[in-house]
Amino acid sequence: MVDFLQNWVYLTGSMALIGIGLYIVLTNTNIFRIIVGLNIIDSGTNLFIVTIAWHPKSVMPIYTATNNLVVNGHVIAADPLPQSLVLTAIVIGLGTTALALAIAVKIYQKYGTLDVRKIKEEDR
């Protein structure tokens, strides 16, 4: 029962993060807050990827002198493939955030505001 709950806690947490992030992105008009929302979505995604790779009795997927990954022909380690995918996802999130911030800096210089509504009015 505890094992079952442990996994669900993380799944629910990742869903909550993504829900919060989506809500922020859809409702806010401030560019900086939208970037924060995107970051929260990214964190939720990363948590989700790690969660599907993990179960409470798993060991780390690194061979050391004391850490046996394979017992009786069965792998007992956590799934290493999603862990390598999450590395990629983190780096991609970082790159998107850096670019978004650069565009936001430039928008602030050219328009003097970060409010999406005001920017749209000025473009008319």
Partner: peptide
């Protein structure tokens, strides 16, 4: 779910 996640 839980301990059913199986790497095998």
């Amino acid at each position: 779910k839980g301990n059913e996640v199986n790497v095998n």
